[in-house]
Simulated assay, not measured.
Amino acid sequence: MITYPLLQKCGTVGVTAPSSGVELELHDMFKQAVSRSEERGYPVICGETVWTQDRAKSAPAETRAKEFNRMMQDNSVDVIIPPWGGELLIEIIDMLDFESFKNKWILGYSDTSVLLLATTLKTGMATAHGTNFVDLRGEYSDTTTVMWEEVLATKEGESVIQYSSDKFQEKWDHEHPSPEVFHLTEKTTLKTLSDENVTLKGRLLGGCIDVISHLIGTPYGNIDEYQKEFIHNEPILWYFENCNLATTNLRRTLVQMRLAGWFDNCSGIMFGRSSANDTVENYDIKDVYNDLEQDLKVPIIYDIDCGHVPPQMTLINGAYAEVEVKDGKGKIEQWFN
């Protein structure tokens, strides 16, 4: 059975850096995010790892793991939101004390999704794939990003609905800061391989495919055990976002997942927008999706609001979801049961 944390209004946000911390020259930007959170009624406790970054990590693995464990055990911290992702979170996975974790939300994406997926698979506690902390520094949030708060405040036994964004950000423009952080200029259109309307149902699992794939074959990526122990063999509805993989590398990763049994009892797969997906020898991203659909015989949805091309929905690992795509627009309802 899945357990669901509950975000309390004015709950304390714990910010720790299990992957990358914040470089000195970006401290002011991070402090702005802290100020915005506190203005909105959410006090912030920052760990020491937040303020340092060297050799592709915020601190040695032992230091990062101890600080994260401490925040997960601390009753005064209500939700943990890392500043952002990074590269080497996987170094701390075998140092985490999963059995001591309190029932609280962990929210983030990118490299943080290694932590999210491993936590849900090991403990049955739902985790939240969505905004990172630094992207909450704006005067206000766009209508997609802002849903993180409502989603995490959903009570067990209830459901929450989100809709696809109207527009997405094609590229960053740091020279001209936006009041809502992102520069949303391009029309959002969700796509299916059949170009027909699609409805998918299942238990959500997923994250950044570049990094969560490294859990395959480890004690922290046991999908079969998770299905049996926590979701009673209900079908899994997977969502992925691709940060850096070219099409052939993405294809290899998806085949490895299939061979490892990750797609056994799968009801469908959703892919987020990506600025990666580089074509290799005429093998393009749609070829990847077509090959995967032929392998698995399940529907594929792509260009959803998920990942490194903002904004993104808040997707809950472990929640039961129904996703509808109709005429390029999407609706997702997640049940916390």
Rank of each mutant, 00 (worst) to 15 (best):
T145P: 03
S267R: 00
V134P: 08
Y4E: 14
P43R: 02
E139L: 14
T16Y: 00
N337T: 14
P179G: 10
E139G: 10
A260M: 08
G307I: 01
F168D: 06
G124V: 01
E175A: 00
D287L: 07
F168H: 12
I45A: 09
I316M: 08
Q53Y: 14
D291E: 11
E156F: 07
W262M: 07
S37D: 09
E87S: 09
T247K: 09
F168K: 05
R36S: 12
H176N: 15
A276V: 02
E186P: 02
H214Q: 13
H214P: 02
W262L: 02
Q169V: 04
S194A: 11
L205H: 02
Y239H: 13
E149V: 00
V298P: 02
W51L: 04
F30S: 11
T52E: 09
L152G: 00
N290R: 15
L204C: 05
T131F: 03
V15R: 12
D97L: 01
F68G: 07
T112A: 05
F336Q: 07
K104F: 06
L205C: 05
G47N: 09
N249F: 13
V15Q: 13
E234D: 10
K167H: 14
L121E: 02
P82M: 06
V325Y: 11
D173F: 03
P83T: 06
H232D: 14
G318F: 04
R273V: 03
Q334T: 12
F98D: 11
E23I: 06
G47V: 04
S141W: 10
W238I: 02
E39A: 13
S58F: 03
D327P: 04
F336R: 12
W172C: 10
K191R: 14
L115S: 07
A56M: 15
K57P: 09
I212W: 04
V151A: 08
D94T: 05
S37T: 09
V255S: 00
E281P: 01
K122W: 00
A246S: 12
T192Q: 11
G268Y: 14
D210H: 00
A59T: 04
Y163H: 15
C306W: 05
G268P: 08
D173H: 04
A56Q: 15
Q256K: 15
I301Q: 08
F263T: 04
T314P: 07
V13G: 05
I304T: 14
Y226P: 03
D173G: 03
S20V: 00
F240H: 10
L296D: 06
L117D: 01
L24G: 04
K122N: 07
A126D: 11
P43V: 03
K326L: 05
L152T: 04
D94E: 15
V160I: 15
